Amino acid sequence: MILSIEKLKTLRREKGWSQEVLAKATGLSVRTIQRIESDGKASVESTLSIASVFNLPPKSLEATPDEIKVDWTRKMIMKNLFALLIISGAIVMLTILAANFKTFIDGTTLLFIPLFLYSATILAFGTDGMFKSLAGLRYLFTDEMVGGSKAQYLSEIYASQVKFLYGGALIMLAVGFIAMFTHVDTYENFVFFRATAINLISLFYATVLSEGVFRPLSIKLRTCDIKG
């Protein structure tokens, strides 16, 4: 078995034990403890001895792989695709019931929100982080993942992108309302309210992307290693 070196060292230090004390507590040799804390490799018997000392299940001492391992199956992909289509269909239905569907399509917003999102991502996580976030969208279509540190990193990116989306929407709202109130004397009531509705489209886009894609994906990646 491969144990988490950092986890083992942390548990030992929390108790204030040296490697020699841990060796006596487990009945293992000091050399065995040193080797395990060096390369993480331990036999089943050694793992059981160490786990019993810390009153933990042996599995909790295992190292989490860095790479994201995914079990891609047709059934899993179709299930998650179906869920995504239901969410999209519900949003489209609501927009049609609310107004003409074309009302919700604004070219400026469609251009600004993605540009702001990925520009902010580059500033926060670098170009590599941006490309990882784009490639990671495929994990929407699976539930069977073992993630490790890379999954946690991606989760942090998507959690941050939720903030970037709302930030971009807030900027558009602020600019739009400043422009509207600056020229409020020239507006008729109908024109003013229509301009207000168009101004809110940025918040609509940000909410749909954040709550329909990025936040669920962030949660999925953050919890993939602790599913029972």
Rank of each mutant, 00 (worst) to 15 (best):
E6P: 09
E6N: 12
L8W: 02
L11S: 02
L11K: 02
E14M: 08
K15Y: 08
G16N: 02
G16Y: 02
E20R: 15
V21M: 12
K24H: 11
K24F: 09
K24D: 10
A25W: 12
T26Q: 09
G27Y: 04
G27E: 02
S29F: 07
Q34K: 13
Q34Y: 09
R35E: 10
R35Q: 12
I36S: 00
E37P: 00
S43Q: 13
L48P: 04
L48H: 05
F54H: 07
N55Y: 08
P58W: 01
A63H: 05
T64Q: 15
T64W: 07
E67A: 12
I68F: 02
K69E: 14
K69S: 15
K69H: 13
V70N: 05
M76Y: 14
K79F: 09
F82G: 13
F82D: 09
I86R: 04
I87K: 09
I87D: 08
S88I: 10
V92I: 08
I96T: 11
I96A: 12
A99Y: 13
N100I: 03
F101R: 07
K102H: 14
K102I: 13
F104K: 03
I105D: 05
D106F: 02
G107M: 06
T108S: 13
T108W: 13
T109R: 08
F112I: 11
P114C: 03
P114L: 01
F116P: 07
F116T: 04
L117M: 10
Y118C: 08
T121D: 02
T121V: 06
I122D: 07
L123D: 09
F125H: 07
F125G: 07
T127M: 15
K132R: 09
S133L: 01
S133M: 08
R138G: 14
R138S: 12
F141Y: 02
E144Y: 07
E144L: 04
G147D: 01
G147V: 01
K150L: 00
A151M: 03
A151D: 00
A151L: 04
L154K: 01
L154C: 02
L154M: 01
S155N: 00
E156F: 10
I157D: 00
I157W: 02
A159V: 06
S160M: 06
K163L: 06
K163H: 04
F164I: 06
F164S: 05
Y166Q: 01
Y166H: 01
Y166T: 00
Y166F: 10
G167T: 03
I171W: 03
V175Y: 05
M180E: 09
F181C: 02
V184Y: 11
Y187T: 05
Y187I: 04
N189R: 15
N189E: 14
V191A: 15
F192L: 15
A195L: 13
T196W: 14
S202Y: 06
F204Y: 15
F204A: 15
A206G: 10
V208C: 13
S210E: 00
E211K: 14
R215D: 15
L217D: 01
S218T: 00
C224Q: 05
